[in-house]
Computed example of a mutant assay.
Amino acid sequence: MNEQEIVDYIIKETEKANIDNISRTEAYYAYFKRHKEIEWAFLASMVSRNAGWNMCDLEGAYFSFALKKNLRKRLFLTYERANWLIFKDAYPQLLLYELSKKKKKSLFSLLSKFDVHSFMEEEWTRFWEEGKKKRLVHALVVNEQHIIQQPVISHPVYQKRVFSRPFFKLQEMLHFSSVLFPTIQGELYGLSVYNFLKVEERIELGVKLSELLFHRELFTLFDDFASSTPHTGSRYDYEQYFRERGKIATPHLRSTFRPVAHHETQRDKWVESKEKLERWLVDTPLVEIVNITRWYKKKQRTLHFYMLVEGKMKEIIKWK
């Protein structure tokens, strides 16, 4: 393929895989199975699973009872928009690396054709020459969290209609929000999300999650889960492995949400100091391995109780 054919091929493949949360999750994991050295692809796949579960919660037995339809729709679109933007930026990078391997020469100068930040061209070139896997994971985490900062996190509409709402603040305050890495043994590992609106906190979380995901004692367990459990968006994906299996409280994504037509007019070019970037790229935080299965189940019961009370209160107010 010549350069234009490469660009056309990557645009086509990215659009085909960027249809919804399930197509993105599957594309990331399939890519990781082809290129195990690109660890970020597995991290992206597992985080994407979490986004799908959070989306489907909105139309499940509890959230649909307590939250108004308009708020649920806004929350869904927030998850969907952020994940669509990240995939649109990241997947061309992954495909260019794949083609570079096939051609046995660097094609990263073509990243500008996809409006990818020059920071990533430098980091992919460095990885091509030096093969430092962790640094590349950190670089991708840094870039993608900046990608969503202006169009989603700091956007006035999302700030007003989503992030300033009591429900969002309550989730963070009571530590209801977590990124989960399940196993087929019915165990859960993961980390809670704090200060989600700050790009620094999301980067630190992403780096810590990568350390947890690829921990030598746990990676095989997580990979077994991913390879044997199709992603549906329902929390039953992992709850089916619990000893005390309850009813399916969240639906499947594709039976609940239609694909969303997105557009992106102009991508903001983020700027950070070299000192800060280098700190993010080389620092590896120590991650304590904590089995959060019991903690998670307790938090879910608390959240469900809150949702039921909230729903009942709305019914009482409505009938008054």
Rank of each mutant, 00 (worst) to 15 (best):
E3W: 01
V7P: 08
Y9M: 13
Y9E: 15
Y9S: 14
I10T: 11
K12F: 15
E13Y: 12
E15V: 04
N18P: 00
D20F: 01
I22R: 10
I22N: 07
S23M: 01
R24M: 06
Y29V: 11
Y29E: 11
Y29S: 14
A30P: 01
K33F: 09
E37C: 00
I38E: 07
F42Q: 09
A44S: 14
M46F: 10
V47C: 06
S48Q: 09
G52L: 02
W53H: 04
A61L: 14
A61F: 13
K69H: 14
K69N: 15
K69I: 12
K69M: 10
R74M: 09
L77C: 00
T78Q: 04
E80Q: 06
E80N: 07
A82R: 01
N83M: 10
W84P: 08
Y91S: 02
Q93F: 06
Q93I: 03
L96S: 03
L96W: 04
L96T: 06
E98T: 05
L99C: 01
S100M: 01
K103W: 05
K104T: 13
K104H: 13
S112W: 03
S112C: 06
S112I: 12
F114G: 03
F114T: 05
D115V: 00
D115T: 02
E123Y: 02
W124L: 13
W128Y: 12
E129Q: 12
E129V: 02
E129M: 06
E130R: 14
K132D: 15
A139E: 09
V141P: 03
V142H: 12
E144H: 01
Q145V: 08
V152I: 14
I153F: 09
I153H: 02
H155E: 05
F163N: 06
F163D: 10
R165L: 03
F168D: 04
L170V: 15
Q171V: 08
E172C: 03
M173C: 06
L180H: 09
L180G: 07
P182N: 07
E187Y: 04
Y189M: 06
S192W: 07
S192H: 14
V193N: 12
Y194E: 13
Y194K: 14
F196N: 06
V199S: 05
E200F: 00
E204N: 12
E204C: 01
L209C: 11
E217T: 11
L218S: 05
A226S: 08
S228L: 04
G233A: 05
Y236R: 09
E239T: 15
E239V: 04
R243F: 11
G246V: 09
L253R: 01
F257C: 10
P259N: 05
V260I: 15
H263V: 04
Q266Y: 08
R267K: 14
D268N: 10
K269D: 04
W270L: 00
K274M: 06
E275C: 03
K276E: 12
E278L: 07
W280G: 05
L281H: 12
T284G: 01
I289C: 00
R294K: 15
K299Y: 09
Q300P: 01
T302Y: 15
L308G: 03
K314E: 13
I317A: 07
I317L: 14
I317W: 14
W319S: 12
